[in-house]
Every structure is written in structure tokens, then in C-alpha cells.
């Protein structure tokens, strides 16, 4: 009964109307990122957004539908990865309930937890559906690790751990920046608006800070990565 109530809590009409917009945000930003040739995906910002203000179940649904619709409209290659998107939304939702979307540094932790989830969830799909080496650019890392003598699962897992954190921390920060930019009157219409502590004022500075933090993390990670392979 508790489970049913927890699921029901996530969904009011605002949630149902927000989900399509969130999916569109996922896809449009994802395409912008490709256009700007940025070294990240940023295709789950909408999913995290829903997860935070509506809850884990709504987040999971948004992630799932996002991949299904990506598959329906743009590229059927998105279908097999839906469990990853589902778990991203689900974990982001629980992070928010645990209070990790109440200040900037906590959001970075949330991003990291989401990244670990994504890394773990995409490993079996990559290994068992795609035979380990998928069609993404990071496959070269996997290929390299296999050649250095690691087994398939640990090679894929290491690759994912290397690739995911930058992307998911940036995703969480950008989702938080968007939430900070929305009025508390507006946020209050959603089922779990209490998950967000909105410190008002300096919207643009906060957005710039988010981008700067992202840039910083990209740089830091590049450094760590170079260390690892040399």
C-alpha cells in the first residue's frame, strides 16, 4: 500500500503535463550539444528536473518515455538503453528526497550518485546486447582497456565510470540551475516541490556558476583521465 501511495504521490496534472516538456528538453538540449560538439551528452536534464520536483517514479517514467520517444522519432538505437534512463530518473528522485537538491555542492554529490547508477546500469546492456564494444566514441577506451588485459565487464565498467561523472554532474547542476530560475509559486504546484530549496536572487550568476563548475569538472576529469592512461 505504501508503495502505491508513494507512486501516486508523484503524479498530479502538472506532472503529466511537465513530462512531455521534460522529454522535449532532453532531446532538444541533447541535439544542441551534438551541434556544438561538446564532449558530454546532457540528454537527461529534463529527466532529473521531473525527478526532483515530482519524485522518483515520475523521474523513472520520464527517463523511460524519453528513450522510447527518441526511438520513435529520431533513432531506434535509443530503445535498448531505456533501463539506464529509467534508473537515472529514479535515483535522481531519491537523491532529491534525501535533500541533495538543496545546495550547489550537494547537487554535485547527487550528480555523482546518478553517474554511478548510469555506469552500472549501462554495463550489462553494453556487454550482453552489444558484445562490449558499442557504437559510441568511448568504445575506443573500452577497446584500449581490453587490450591491456582486462576482462570485458571490468573494461566496460571502467569506461563508464570514466565517462559518466562529468556528464551527470553537469546534468544535475544544470537541472538545479533551471529550478532556481523558476518561481516558488510555480514550483509549489508540483507534488514534491519541498525537495528544492530555492535561494532567490542572482539567477544569471547562478547559471553562470553552473556552467563554470561544469567547465572546471571537464578540465579536472580530463586531467585525471590523462593520468590514468599514461
Amino acid at each position: 500500500m505504501n508503495l502505491i501511495n508513494s507512486i501516486k504521490k508523484d503524479f498530479n496534472t502538472m506532472t503529466w503535463v511537465l513530462i512531455p516538456v521534460a522529454i522535449a528538453i532532453n532531446i532538444v538540449i541533447g541535439q544542441f550539444v551534438v551541434l556544438l560538439k561538446l564532449p558530454v551528452f546532457l540528454d537527461s536534464i529534463g529527466t532529473v528536473l521531473v525527478a526532483v520536483i515530482a519524485g522518483p517514479w515520475a523521474g523513472a517514467l520520464t527517463g523511460t518515455l524519453s528513450n522510447i520517444i527518441w526511438g520513435l522519432l529520431i533513432d531506434p538505437n535509443a530503445f535498448p538503453w531505456f533501463p539506464v534512463a529509467l534508473l537515472i530518473g529514479f535515483v535522481a528522485g531519491w537523491c532529491a528526497i534525501a535533500g541533495l537538491f538543496k545546495s550547489w555542492w550537494r547537487v554535485v554529490i547527487a550528480g555523482f550518485l546518478i553517474a554511478i547508477t548510469a555506469a552500472l546500469a549501462s554495463t550489462p546492456i553494453a556487454v550482453y546486447l552489444y558484445g562490449g564494444i558499442t557504437a559510441s566514441g568511448s568504445s575506443f577506451i573500452t577497446a584500449f582497456l581490453i587490450q591491456t588485459g582486462r576482462d570485458m565487464v571490468s573494461a566496460v565498467l571502467s569506461t563508464n565510470f570514466l565517462v559518466e561523472p562529468v556528464d551527470k554532474i553537469a546534468t544535475a547542476l544544470l537541472a538545479f540551475a533551471i529550478l532556481e530560475g523558476l518561481s516558488s509559486r510555480y514550483l509549489a504546484r508540483f507534488p514534491r516541490s519541498e525537495n528544492v530549496a530555492v535561494a532567490k536572487g542572482g539567477r544569471t550568476t547562478q547559471l553562470i556558476v553552473a556552467v563554470l563548475v561544469t567547465v572546471f569538472l571537464v578540465a579536472l576529469y580530463a586531467l585525471v583521465f590523462v593520468r590514468l592512461i599514461s
Partner: peptide, 21 residues
Amino acid sequence: RIRALLPLVAPLVFGSLVDVE
């Protein structure tokens, strides 16, 4: 290119979120 993302995305995202209500 990273700096380019923000002015592209912000108007789109906030506009479409406000319509939700």
C-alpha cells in the same frame, strides 16, 4: 562552445516550462 549553450537553451527551457501551468 560551452558558453554558447546557455543563451540558446535558457529562453527555450523557461518558456516551455512556464507553459506547463
